[in-house]
Amino acid sequence: MPDLPLETSNIIFELRNVTHQFGSLAAVRDVTLQIRAGERVALVGPSGAGKSTLISLLNGTLSPSQGEVWVLGQHLARLSPRGLRHVQRQIGTIYQQFHLVNNLRVIHNVNAGHLGRWTFLKGVISLAWPLDVDTAAKALAQVGIPEKIYERTDRLSGGQQQRVAIARVLVQQPQAILADEPVSSLDPERSREIMSLLRDLSQTTGKTLVVSLHDIDLARSHCDRIVGLREGQVVFDRPADEVNETFIRALYKITA
């Protein structure tokens, strides 16, 4: 692979002139971005700025209309479905609406994190007789809800469901975690708890964290780099402590 940059070992995600169109609407326009191992990056910007699209491009559930997405040194568009799955196993994603299977028990939603490694048969057996219970229990203990392991997921509150989603990522043991507005459905207290959980997780294990947020204060307090997006384009990209009110106002300003 001749066009691989030299410092590739350090780069987890790289977008090269990426554009993504939904019909005639360009959700992401000509974005170039590099994210290194261990970084905690917040994506901020108004609604419709392209944050969610960017996350979907990074975890390979969307492929760009133009440009290249590189993850862990692999050009996603050139991968076979099997190769893509292999890369995806190294990336855990957390969503705003949790995206859990509501009528399964918590244990199964957590164990879904294993699916990239388990055989199909093992997955099926585990649905009837949960396997690897210890791993799941440990993950749930880490997120603070060990007692919910055999509960039905839809019985849990929003904050608890988001913890289940995080436990699933813990079980998955990815190299990087993507979080798409993980706290937008939660109240401020719950939001802070979840963000702290994600930050601690990244700090203790050195996992890369890319999180899209509406709340600038949370971004500043929990991340070390902030990327401002507006109408699908990068407006600024700086260390968190350098992002002041001027940047924010420019990001959210209303243009006619």
Binding site: T61, Q88, G116
Partner: peptide, 25 residues
């Protein structure tokens, strides 16, 4: 399809998405 996309995103195979997502849903 959101829970299914989530399963796809973590690298689950078709069969797994079926048993852990489509069927229970």
């Amino acid at each position: 399809d959101r829970p299914l996309t989530a399963l796809k995103a973590l690298g689950a195979r078709g069969g797994d998405i079926f048993t852990y997502g489509i069927l229970p849903l």
